[in-house]
């Protein structure tokens, strides 16, 4: 792969990451949110693949395959299954009905957060100024921040889980873009933890529906001081 092609593909993949993050923040229908989350997993896997091909790195290739299996296939499938169950229970419409921040304000926040991401990533990009991947780190950081924002403003359980995973995708992207390899054991452990955490949250979502009759997290206000 020529250097220009590498840089262009890299920017394309990172642009797709950020665009899908904004779309997830924008859309209210759970089905659409999950679809874009799957697309983002795909973008993340291609990012890893591009880095692997460019660096002739078999380890990164394996990681790309793992990212694809986990974030483009397994997690969206789990989310879709949770959505199907929620639809079967059919107590509420399957969309974010009353988010804390409206659409316009959310999109404005995403813009501000992207700027903020550029500011906070400064030391990281300065660390390896010659690497094109390092210059894309702010985009990964922006996905982390948008995921966090979405996490604190969404009120439905499923939307919150997806926001958490959005943030996690951003963290993975930052990890990939710093091009500092970690041991395979750590990568495996991290992926396993994410998968298990989502499974646990899915079971808890079911229990929320059983005990509260809805998955509206505003209902969770019995424990407080």
């Amino acid at each position: 792969m020529t250097n220009t092609a590498y840089v262009e593909l890299l920017n394309l993949a990172c642009g797709a990451l950020l665009a899908t993050a904004v779309l997830i923040l924008w859309r209210r229908q759970f089905a659409a949110i999950i679809r874009w989350f799957g697309v983002q997993g795909l973008a993340l896997a291609s990012l890893a693949a591009i880095l692997a091909v460019h660096g002739h790195d078999a380890r990164l290739g394996a990681i790309a395959a793992g990212v694809f299996a986990l974030r483009a296939v397994a997690l969206p499938w789990l989310l879709r299954r949770a959505l199907a169950r929620a639809e079967a229970a059919a107590v509420q419409p399957q969309r974010e009905t009353r988010p804390l921040v409206n659409v316009t304000a959310s999109l404005l926040a995403a813009a501000v957060l992207t700027l903020l991401a550029y500011a906070v990533s400064q030391p990281l990009t300065a660390l390896t100024p010659a690497s094109p991947a390092a210059h894309a780190i702010p985009l990964g950081m922006a996905v982390v921040l948008i995921g966090f924002f979405s996490l604190v403003t969404r009120r439905r359980a499923l939307a919150q889980v997806t926001s958490f995973l959005l943030m996690d995708n951003g963290i993975t992207a930052v990890g990939l873009l710093t091009v500092a390899s970690t041991s395979l054991l750590v990568e495996l452990g991290v992926s396993l933890d994410v998968l298990l955490a989502v499974l646990v949250l899915q079971v808890l979502t079911g229990r929320l529906r059983e005990t509260f009759g809805s998955t509206d997290l505003d209902e969770l206000r019995e424990l407080r001081d």
Binding site: R207, L208, L217
Partner: peptide
């Protein structure tokens, strides 16, 4: 215990 309180606490804890 799967009561409302317990489920709420578990959700907040994991999240």
């Amino acid at each position: 215990r799967r009561t409302r309180h317990a489920v709420e606490a578990a959700w907040k804890y994991v999240m």
